[in-house]
Design a protein around this nucleic acid. Sequence first.
RNA 1: GCUCCCGUAGUCUAGUCCGGUCAAGGAUUCGGCGCCUUCGACGCCGUAACGCGGGUUCGAAUCCCGCCGGGAGCACCA
Length: 524
Amino acid sequence: MSEVVAEVRSLPGPERVDRLASLGGPEATRPKEAPSTGGEFPELEGAERGKVVLRLAPFPSGALHIGHGRMIFINQYYRERYGGKILLVFDDTVGSEEKRVETEFFGLIEEDLRSAGLTPDAVYYKSDRIPLFYPWARRVIDAGAAYVCTCPAETLRANRAAGVACGHRSQTHDATVSEWEKMLGNGYGPGEAVLRLKTDLQDPDPAFRDRVLMRISDLDHPRVGTKYRVWPMLEFSWAVDDIELGVTHVLRGKDLVIEDRMQRYIWDLLGIRGPPFGHWGILRVREAKVSKSKSYREVKSGEYDGWADPRTWSFRSLERRGISMDATRAFVLSFGMSLSDIEVPAETLYAENRKRIDATTVRRAFVADPVRVDVDEYPADLGSVRLANHPDLPALGDRDAPAGPSFYLARRDLVGRAGAEVRLKDLINIHLPDEPVGLAGEVRARFTSRENKRIPRLQWVGTEGAYPVDVLGVEGEHTRGWGEAALAAAQPGQILQFERVGFVRVESDWVPGSNPLRVVYGHP
RNA sequence: GCUCCCGUAGUCUAGUCCGGUCAAGGAUUCGGCGCCUUCGACGCCGUAACGCGGGUUCGAAUCCCGCCGGGAGCACCA
């Protein structure tokens, strides 16, 4: 055996692959399909092609956003890699006063998943499965590993911190059973009794001591109302459902690692072999101060422009900005399965998107915060000019841009340039007046020459045919300005590049011909 | 504080399991040059990293020990 290993190791890498391939087998011919940039994805323990079952468990409290990226794309990646299945299981146990389940998000989340190319193979709702958990709870009780505790929450917590037991822990099995039946039979009110798992009270991790399995809540659940009063805690529900649903691998964020331990502990005491776990660290985009509760508040109040508001950094907002799902996926997968928390600048995502859209995106002139400039001695033959739609790609064609003698120029291009000579890009050079540009009014400039000088080149829009444009920015701000005449032919959903501004996407609901042209800023 | 996890350039990542092919590769950012009259793209060039200290070894990013730093969890939320 070890001789064979030594022999194989002595072979150079490529030859190893060749030799492997010659031996046949499904894995040999496709060693691994690593994403283009970095990102390492290990084999899943014991995974068999076609038999992998994964699950996705979002809590329905908002649209999916960039922070959910790893959950979505990593699970999707492994489904593809092994040809498996993904179950969408809504974790809609009753929640709490602060964390309410809301039905509108079920559909929203499914839509988001579909738009991410992740159509689940099946959809489940935890709230439909509540009765299923009761016999399982009974199994744990019968194994002597659970008890009903009627201590107030504070006492329970204090005991846990101190590592001491309360009187309920030593109840007989019969007493526990009758207490449990009392819980199920409305004998206790919310907060008055819980079913707790017996672990080691001296466990070094205080968080792990005698955790709660089931509790009582009479919150009105939007799907099942007050039909159930005894609800499972997340980790118990998963200890059950990962088995019941035949999940083969649990891939989730590292915030849930303690739940692994809980699930394994329960499985061990029931003599069940459960699936292995995998985790990833938190992904943050530096510019995205994503807060689900803030987004929720602002969307509800109307402060945000729905769940596609750029400030939510939701998937739908990225799409609205012209950032393709493909780019987002590549971006997220480039981080691999690393367990470290990562904070990455949005620029990395933008670069990924730019690669994909640059070659198909036409250039257009846009001037924000416009100042009207009239040019004296303007050449009579320059009523319009022919411009290429893309500087490097003639295939994208060209268009006619109405020019002077009157123009809109951006105020920020004019300030500090009093008395200077500047170039109207692709057109002429002009001399700006010596007086600084005021806040209002017009500017009179003078034509100087046509030659292509290496002087500041400014974006311009001829006043004739200029099209009003409203740009929605990443911070939710609106910028008004003038775009060139060709924008009248823009199409909903089209991605454009405003020169010296960046990529924008025409709003899907924009009606061609209506004023102003509404676009959403994507990125530089 | 307790538990677990993680430390490779400005940022992200490959390499760590199984020490040599790593005087550390890729992506992004930044700087320079060229070219294209643009945000930018492309080409070429450049800056820049194994957290610190010991140990093992002919040889350490990789193994061992100790520090230091960062993160997550510590709910009758999910």
